[in-house]
Simulated scan of single mutants.
Amino acid sequence: MDVIERVRSAVLGYFGVEAAAVDTASMTFLGLEPIEILRVPGDGVTHYATVGGSRHPMGDPGDLHADPVRGPRAELMLTMRSAAGAGAGVARSLGVLAAAPAVEGVVLQADALLDLGEPIWQDAPFTAVLLGAGAIPEIELPDPAEPVRYFAVTPVTATEAAWVRVRGAQALRDAWAEAGIDVLDPDRGAASL
Results as ranks from 00 to 15, higher is better:
155 P>E: 08
189 G>F: 00
165 R>T: 13
144 P>K: 06
179 A>K: 12
125 P>L: 13
174 D>A: 11
143 D>E: 15
156 V>E: 03
164 V>N: 00
121 W>F: 14
172 L>G: 03
190 A>G: 12
173 R>Y: 05
126 F>G: 12
176 W>R: 01
142 P>E: 11
129 V>M: 06
156 V>C: 03
120 I>F: 13
128 A>S: 15
161 A>F: 02
155 P>R: 03
149 R>M: 08
150 Y>F: 15
174 D>V: 10
150 Y>K: 07
122 Q>G: 00
139 I>D: 11
155 P>K: 01
181 I>L: 12
144 P>E: 07
117 G>S: 08
127 T>N: 09
156 V>I: 08
183 V>H: 09
187 D>H: 10
138 E>A: 15
183 V>Y: 02
172 L>S: 03
176 W>K: 00
168 G>P: 12
118 E>F: 00
156 V>Y: 04
186 P>D: 04
148 V>P: 15
142 P>G: 04
128 A>E: 09
125 P>R: 15
180 G>R: 01
167 R>F: 09
165 R>H: 06
140 E>L: 10
163 W>F: 07
154 T>N: 04
140 E>I: 06
151 F>H: 15
158 A>Q: 02
149 R>K: 09
129 V>N: 10
118 E>Y: 11
115 D>T: 14
179 A>E: 15
183 V>D: 12
189 G>D: 12
162 A>R: 13
164 V>M: 03
154 T>A: 06
160 E>M: 02
159 T>P: 00
157 T>Y: 04
126 F>R: 04
177 A>Y: 08
190 A>T: 07
118 E>T: 14
183 V>P: 10
187 D>M: 11
166 V>A: 08
184 L>P: 01
137 P>H: 14
162 A>L: 03
125 P>W: 14
182 D>M: 02
116 L>S: 13
153 V>I: 05
161 A>S: 06
137 P>D: 14
133 A>F: 08
183 V>I: 11
159 T>E: 14
114 L>C: 09
188 R>I: 00
164 V>E: 00
163 W>Y: 04
156 V>G: 05
179 A>S: 13
123 D>C: 11
147 P>C: 07
125 P>G: 11
152 A>H: 12
188 R>W: 02
167 R>H: 13
